[in-house]
């Protein structure tokens, strides 16, 4: 099944979802589509003002452009997701997940969609990490 991950660029979540037999939906695949599209030239990500406008579906015009742009890009993924794993409090979330306000609205939108959802906190020690991995395995194993 297709599993949307938050942070959408996380190495750990991408790896775990794939390792446990599902297809992770990540920012990277979208970026690939955008950078391989040679007809658009808005480097480095090829996000265009039109993409940002598409973000108006999720947030109003008074919301900063960076938030609308991120939502527009991610919506292509979460619209096709069968399940979601959200990991909150990731200690370092940069680049596409660098805006805390976007993450707030993204998580809210995901919770509204009613699909199977696993919410985790970033582990603070070995014990929590072990629990986290077991939770992910359990959640993904239950997706049929």
């Amino acid at each position: 099944m297709k599993v949307f991950i938050v942070p959408p660029n996380s190495l750990i979540l991408f790896d775990l979802v794939e390792r446990f037999g599902h297809e992770p939906l990540s920012t990277m695949q979208l970026i690939q589509e955008m950078v391989d599209n040679l007809e658009i030239d808005s480097p480095p990500l090829n996000v265009t003002p039109d993409d940002v406008k598409r973000g108006l579906k999720y947030a109003g015009i008074e919301v900063p452009s960076g938030i609308r742009g991120r939502l527009a890009v991610w919506s292509e993924l979460f619209e096709q997701a069968d399940a979601t794993i959200i990991m909150e409090d990731a200690p370092y979330a940069f680049g596409c997940v660098g805006c805390h306000r976007t993450n707030l609205i993204l998580n809210y939108l995901l919770r509204q969609r009613g699909m199977p959802l696993l919410e985790l906190r970033y582990p603070l020690d070995d014990e929590e990490a072990m629990t986290m991995v077991l939770q992910v395995k359990g959640f993904l194993g239950g997706l049929k």
């Binding site: 030239d41 808005s42 480097p43 480095p44 990500l45 996000v47 265009t48 003002p49 993409d51 940002v52 900063p64 452009s65 960076g66 938030i67 742009g69 991120r70 890009v73 680049g95 596409c96 660098g98 805006c99």
Partner: peptide, 14 residues
């Protein structure tokens, strides 16, 4: 900076 790429303006800056 923050948000330049997802606002589609990084290319304009460069």
């Amino acid at each position: 900076s923050c948000g330049t790429e997802y606002s589609g303006v990084q290319g304009e800056i460069e």
